[in-house]
């Protein structure tokens, strides 16, 4: 008989490798698929978004300069640590999404496998997407993919873990850093993921996770002068999506529009290529 009183967890934000509460001091109740109370999550604010963007920018220099081999190993390490917490993730996904045992397990396994898939791309996408160009003159010319910079992302609202992983992995594998707003109603798998990220050799600031209401937080990220791109995948409200796109135009951000793909399907390179810039370098060839 188990009469031990469980130790419950305080769910916090993940910014710059640390776990702060929202600077606003606010929380909101999170319930499972059957509306049973699960926890209070931090209700991220404008200033939390600002802090997260700052942390992401601080993390960008080191992460974008890391070797592709290193970035691949770090993502693979995240998968390793997730695998160790597989049961917890299954329980979290089950509670969040109301899926059965088998389906939850499939979602978690696919999430881990997806990270492994993207980890393997770290040292290959530049070979696939970069090239030398046969210009008509005595110049060596090559084009290489480079990370766009700091990316803000609105994670899918339904697919709380697989959707989240499928959004952030292609962003960070190429050297971008990300501020992601987790599923509002299903934030707990994302928060568990932050605990994995914190212990998986991921440098601080590479992934920053906010919980709360995208309608409150995202406009500040969309208009932010030090955010280079925004992924609206998880925005379900069309008016909000349009508003964010308008805000983003002010600094010519790359905007990935809302989408609801089948997350279980193997992705193509579309997400990865969206958050890179092609840099073309010319040099004369002479003796």
């Amino acid at each position: 008989m188990n009469d031990r009183v469980a130790v419950r967890k305080t769910y916090k934000l993940f910014i710059g490798g640390a776990f702060p509460r929202s600077e606003s001091g606010r929380t909101y109740g999170v319930h499972d698929a059957k509306e049973k109370f699960l926890a209070n999550a931090a209700k991220g604010s404008r200033k939390d978004a600002r802090d997260a963007a700052l942390a992401a920018r601080a993390g960008f220099a080191g992460w974008s300069a890391a070797t592709a081999y290193n970035r691949g190993q770090v993502l693979y390490r995240v998968a390793e640590v997730m695998e160790g917490r597989r049961e917890q993730f299954i329980a979290d996904v089950q509670a969040a999404e109301g899926l059965g045992d088998k389906k939850s397990a499939r979602v978690v396994d696919t999430s881990i496998d997806r990270l492994v898939w993207y980890a393997g791309w770290a040292d290959k996408y530049a070979q696939v997407l970069g090239n030398t160009n046969p210009v008509a003159g005595p110049y060596f010319n090559f084009a290489i993919p480079e990370p766009t910079g700091v990316v803000a992302a609105i994670a899918p609202q339904d697919s709380s873990l697989l959707g989240l992983v499928s959004v952030i992995a292609p962003i960070v594998v190429t050297g971008n850093t990300v501020v992601v707003v987790a599923s509002t109603r299903r934030p707990i798998p994302a928060i568990t993921l932050t605990e994995v990220l914190a212990t998986a050799d991921l440098p601080p600031g590479v992934v920053n996770v906010l919980t709360g209401d995208p309608a409150e937080i995202a406009p500040w990220l969309a208009s932010h002068g030090d955010v280079n791109a925004i992924d609206l995948t998880g925005v379900t409200n069309q008016d909000l999506a349009k508003q964010l796109e308008i805000e983003a135009a002010g600094t010519v951000k790359r905007v990935r529009r809302p989408a609801q793909p089948n997350w279980l399907a193997t992705p193509d390179l579309g997400r990865l290529t969206f958050f890179i810039e092609t840099k073309t370098v010319w040099h004369p060839i002479g003796a």
């Binding site: 160009n133 008509a136 010319n141 010319w282």
Partner: peptide, 15 residues
């Protein structure tokens, strides 16, 4: 997006 090293303002359809 375009870096010219020891040259400048070169253009080519392949580039």
């Amino acid at each position: 997006g375009v870096i010219w090293a020891n040259t400048f303002n070169r253009f080519d359809p392949t580039s």
